[in-house]
Write a protein that binds this DNA or RNA. Structure first.
Lengths: 291, 291
DNA sequence: CTAAATATGTAATAAAGCTTCATATTGAAC
DNA sequence: GTTCAATATGAAGCTTTATTACATATTTAG
């Protein structure tokens, strides 16, 4: 079976074009995938009111070599209790249910992102960042925190780096960009006007423009290097976004990429920085005296 | 089989006390768990140079009902190619390997956190935050970005909320705290002196102190409500931390908790806020004219 | 309405996994 | 060291499970 796609998603996608028996089987599996992984072919056939060979054929049609193989793939779609299909938090949820759902959704977003990591683009971005004389991060709203995190990480390299959220500051800096400057714009939608305007300005100024945003968005169109991920949109208004988590991991990837590129000296430098923080720390479990 | 623990971890933990045959089987499974999920009991027995019943007994000893059941549990430990065991990025890694590793590690951290979510504590924290007259978030270094994210999310409620990183500001605000104030301290280690001092001050002032930090850390000891998660430490200096991601998801949980608690009017309020952002957005795929 | 194609079920076959029992190995007491 | 008990391992037969081959039913196109 193709190992790049999730079985549950695959079944759901195939559902419309399925035959009568296959539809019945699909429904039983989707209704309780967990149970299906433990059922024998006979039991599943019975639950779906079809014959055993029908179940077998169903599995093969999905790309598995047979029923046991299908069960293995199915099991892999159920991560330690995590449903691979996005779960919506609703008003009926209690403290025992919604925290798990939120974690699940985040994990799902990451797994989805993992499958479509634009490695080539990441490599190019790392090259630009490594060669940069100066790095600017921009993000507004939720992405402001991501930009701040990025600054905090890149600050550890010797390259000057700053973060901004003020649109005017942003325009001025972008307009004054020059070769060797790298502007990184972070925007989930890629449609925040101030960000898109600034990116266009920066691009025109001769600087390199990297963006973490939605593929084919207006921001993507004015960027030299687009790290575009199709994060599942959260339709519910009151559901926090998972995309910023994905963006943060992308930042991790970029930081790691630059670190690996620079090699040993860079790692030593990072170790020194880490050491510099030690005096700000209390020993573990020390009882405090002063208040 | 106990569904709360990962099979690979479980095998690794049991390894020392295993018999000769069981050790051989364990090694074969750990060497390539992926392959093991597809192997028949006969093949696995052959690869480990043991008999088939030995494999069967091995599975049962681990809590499975038999070999097929074991394979299912094993498959669930391998999330869409993600190894459930933390992977260290090393200098030999290339762009084709390290991004996946970083995502995997993040996913693993989240799955680990999911298993040990302190639901009761989260519920209490949500109650405090819901009832708060004023909310303060504090975080330094990497946690500053988490605090900022938290502010951005909680800002959407009607409760006044601020974030600070300045230690002096922090002390002053903490000392001046009063009943109804909720201070949320975010610190991976729980040993940043400035944060611990401030938390102690805030606690003494009559305010409620919630902390997102390591269990049993100095910070935890001076907090009323400790959301403590044992995030796997990243030993490598140049590896970005996964704990901040877990903290962000905890923030999501708290935000969602408060939202659910407040019910319909709150959701309406959030929808209004979301609407207010629309004019800042460009339509999708619009070609830009001005630069 | 008929014929080909497709889908489904029945029954036989093959494969995989499990149990029982015999043998070997280990460990503790003497 | 030797003996005995406890535990571990393997061989063979047995049971369960899955697959294949074939027959029957259903659909679809002409």
């Amino acid at each position: 079976m193709a190992n790049d796609t999730n079985v549950l998603t695959q079944i759901q996608a195939a559902l419309p074009g399925l035959s009568k028996s296959d539809t019945k089987i699909a429904h039983v599996v989707l209704a309780d995938p967990e149970a299906a992984t433990h059922a024998s072919i006979a039991l599943l056939a019975q639950q779906a009111n079809v014959s055993e060979p029908s179940v077998n054929r169903f599995c093969k049609r999905l790309g598995a070599t047979g029923y046991p193989d299908f069960k293995i793939w199915l099991a892999r779609s159920l991560v330690a209790g995590v449903r691979y299909i996005s779960q919506v938090v609703d008003p009926e949820d209690t403290v025992t249910t919604y925290p798990g759902k939120l974690v699940d959704n985040t994990v799902n977003a990451l797994l989805l992102a993992r499958e479509q990591l634009p490695l080539k683009t990441l490599e190019v971005a790392v090259e630009h960042l490594d060669a940069a004389g100066r790095i600017y991060f921009f993000g507004m709203g939720t992405s402001a925190a991501v930009a701040q995190d990025a600054e905090h990480k890149f600050f550890r390299f010797q390259t000057p780096v700053t973060t901004h959220t003020d649109p005017l500051m942003l325009r001025m800096l972008a307009a004054g960009g020059s070769q060797g400057d790298v502007f990184v714009f972070i925007s989930h939608t890629g449609r925040t006007e101030a960000i898109v305007d600034a990116a266009a300005l920066a691009s025109a100024s001769g600087a390199t423009v990297i963006s973490l945003t939605a593929q084919d968005s207006p921001l993507a169109q004015v960027s030299h290097c687009v790290i575009g991920l199709e994060a599942p949109e959260n339709t519910e208004d009151y559901l926090p976004m998972t995309s910023r988590i994905v963006h943060l991991v992308i930042i991790d990837i970029l930081v790691t990429g630059v670190t690996l590129k620079r090699g040993e000296p860079c790692i030593e430098h990072l170790a020194r920085i880490k050491e510099s923080l030690l005096p700000t720390r209390l020993p573990l479990n020390r009882k405090r005296t002063k208040t």
